[in-house]
Structures are given as structure tokens and as C-alpha cells.
Amino acid sequence: MKSIKMTLAALALSLASSTAALATDVTILTPYISSIPTNEMAQSFKAEGEKRGWKVTIIDTRNDFGQLASRMEDTVNAKANAIVLISTDPGQVGDQVDMAAKAGIPVISLDGSKRNNVAVNVTSNNFELGQQLSEALFKAMGGKGNIVKFFHSAHPGVHQRELGLDATLKKYPDIKIIADHFVKVPGPVDDGRVAMENILRQHGDKIDGVWAAFDDPGIGAELATESELPKSKLIIMGIDGNAQAVDMIKSCTHYKATFRQDFPKMATLGAEQLDKILKGGKADSDEMYVPAVMLTPETLGAKCP
């Protein structure tokens, strides 16, 4: 009886160690899996990783950074082979990043920011995105008019876009922010919609453009405009390439453009860099940018009047 137990235990041990030795464990950690781009990156990275034979696990902590830190500690303790942070400023889990470095576990970041002990941050430059969006919107408005700004400064990337707006505004003295709104999450679409309804009541036709730091409040603004002031000539532009926003652009609404970060490209680039690191090499640079794609009615093949 005792010997059977021993054999079973030995068997289990050897099995466990053999699988651990065989697979490369890569753990993706993010607090924002429910946001479309984060999800897209995670899924693409998972696919890329599995092509390379890695075992990829996705852990989401539902907007909770405290949890993120704990899960990251767990991952380090479980001796994963690599950690991928998505849509997170590694600085917010700085101690855990250092802890991983001490344990010899490489950490890369997608759509985050660069930091000590983070091998590479693959991202689109949010500041540049903000500038691209602002330039495109202001040009479409003819260089003058009033805009409504939807922002969410709690997210580091989204905040960078806002800084991009500020920088661009300096070049366009005739553009004024007539109203702004801090978008609440969860529920950004409806929050954007209610806010836009109220802003339309106050400023109505004086609004020429809507600058949305991400597509969700832009969608809300379009829904509000459609029901409150459909004849308005205002132009809405956002960032992310959200499917519902793309649908609105195609349907010739007030929504005129969205900038899609090339998330699959980011995931691919991230996976390539991680592959190099795992094979004993180094990342090409500590920060790498993937350019954004601008989606407009024209690029989407819609013929709007």
C-alpha cells in the first residue's frame, strides 16, 4: 500500500517537472481585458506565442491594480518563463517588475511605457496619436471653431493623447475647447452620451468638433448628436478603431475618423522581441513604436455626400 503511494507520488512529480521543462510558460497580465484593444492584443499575442510553442496564460484583474500586483507576484513565484504586461504602466507595479528581474524572468510591455527592468515596450506613441488626431480634426474643421474634449486622465496612455492635444492646440489659436468631460469607466459610452446631451443643450450649434481620447465616449457623443441635434455639422474623431465607431464612420454619421493602433502588429512585434530574449538575445530597443492607421469613410470604401 505504502509503496503504491510512493510510486504515484514519484510519477506525479516527474510528470509535473517534465511538463514544466517542456513548455515555455508566458503569462499575460492586464487590468483591462474587457477593453477591445487590450483584448485584441492579448489574443493576438497568445496566437503568436502558441505558434512558437509557448504556453500562454491570460490573467485579468478587472481594473484593479492592487490585484494586478498580487497576481504578478504569484506569477513570479510560479516561475513563469516570461511576463507580458498589456495596457499597464509598468511603473504602477514597479516592485513586482523588479522582483521578476531578480528572479530572472524577462518582462515586456505592450501599450504601456518603458521602464527599468522592462526589456521592451511595444506601443504606438500615444502622444503622437493625440497629435495626429488633433491635426486631422482641426484640419477638417478648417483650422477654427469650438471643440468638446472627452478625456480620461486616469489611464497613462490616454493621458498622453491629451498632452498631444494640448501641444497641437498651441499651433491652432482659433480652436477653443468649449466644454470638456472626464469620462467615467465602467460604462464610458453611456456616460459620454449623457454628457454630450447636456453639452449640446448648452452650446448647440456652437460646437464644431468632438475630440474623443478614445472611441467609447465618441460613440456616446454620436448617439447624443443623432437624437438631439441631427442637423449639426459637428465632426467627431476618436482613437482605437472600435468596431462600433468604424460602423458609424461607414454609415456617414458625424463620426468622421478613428485612429486604429495596429494592435495585432504590436502583439507580433512583441512576440518577436520576446522570442529573441528567450533565445538568449536582447531586444532591439527598449521602446518600439507601431504607427497608427487612420480610418475614414474613404479608407473604409463608403461614399458619403
Binding site: 474587457s34 465602467p186 460604462g187 460613440i219 456616446g220 448617439l223
Partner: peptide, 17 residues
Amino acid sequence: LLTARIGSANPTGGGGY
């Protein structure tokens, strides 16, 4: 109703209520 109103559904969409 929220989904009907905004035309999409988010898994944390009700969190604010």
C-alpha cells in the same frame, strides 16, 4: 435597455450603477 440605447454591450457596463 442600456444595450439598446448605446448599441453595444460591455462586461463592466453596469459597474457604475
